[in-house]
Amino acid sequence: MKEGTVKFFNTAKGFGFITVKDTNEEVFVHSTNLLDDIRENDEVKFDIEKGDRGLSAVKVSLI
């Protein structure tokens, strides 16, 4: 699992971005892939999957 920080998350629209700790890469996250409720600046752990639109964080949970 990767670790990172929630850079942005819009609860009304159900999506946001996470900055990966080791690479500073940003990955998309959708509310359907959350195991916990998240907010900006939360520390999270997650897996990354490659989809049609690029990389997405899945199985996202708070550390």
Rank of each mutant, 00 (worst) to 15 (best):
Met1Gly: 14
Met1Lys: 12
Lys2Glu: 15
Lys2Asn: 15
Glu3Gln: 10
Gly4Tyr: 00
Thr5Arg: 08
Thr5Ala: 00
Thr5Gln: 07
Val6Asn: 00
Phe8Thr: 09
Phe8Leu: 11
Phe9Val: 03
Asn10Glu: 03
Asn10Thr: 03
Thr11Tyr: 03
Thr11His: 06
Thr11Asn: 07
Ala12Ser: 13
Ala12Cys: 02
Ala12Phe: 07
Ala12His: 04
Ala12Tyr: 06
Gly14Met: 02
Gly14Asp: 01
Phe15Arg: 00
Ile18Leu: 11
Thr19Asp: 03
Thr19Pro: 02
Val20Gln: 11
Lys21Cys: 10
Thr23Arg: 05
Thr23Val: 10
Glu25Ala: 11
Glu25Ile: 05
Glu26Val: 05
Glu26Ser: 09
Phe28Thr: 08
Val29Ile: 06
His30Thr: 05
Ser31Arg: 09
Ser31Phe: 15
Thr32Gly: 01
Thr32Ser: 15
Asp36Gln: 15
Asp37Lys: 13
Ile38Pro: 11
Arg39Gly: 07
Glu40Leu: 02
Glu40Ala: 14
Glu40Lys: 12
Asn41Gln: 13
Asn41Gly: 01
Asn41Val: 12
Glu43Met: 04
Glu43Phe: 05
Val44Trp: 02
Phe46Pro: 07
Asp47His: 12
Glu49Asp: 08
Glu49Asn: 07
Lys50Asp: 09
Gly51Ala: 04
Gly51Gln: 05
Asp52Val: 13
Arg53Gln: 06
Leu55Trp: 03
Val58Ile: 08
Val58Phe: 01
Val58Ser: 00
Val60Asn: 14
Val60Ile: 09
Val60Ser: 09
Ser61Met: 15
Ser61Lys: 13
Ser61Gln: 11
Leu62Arg: 15
Ile63Asn: 09
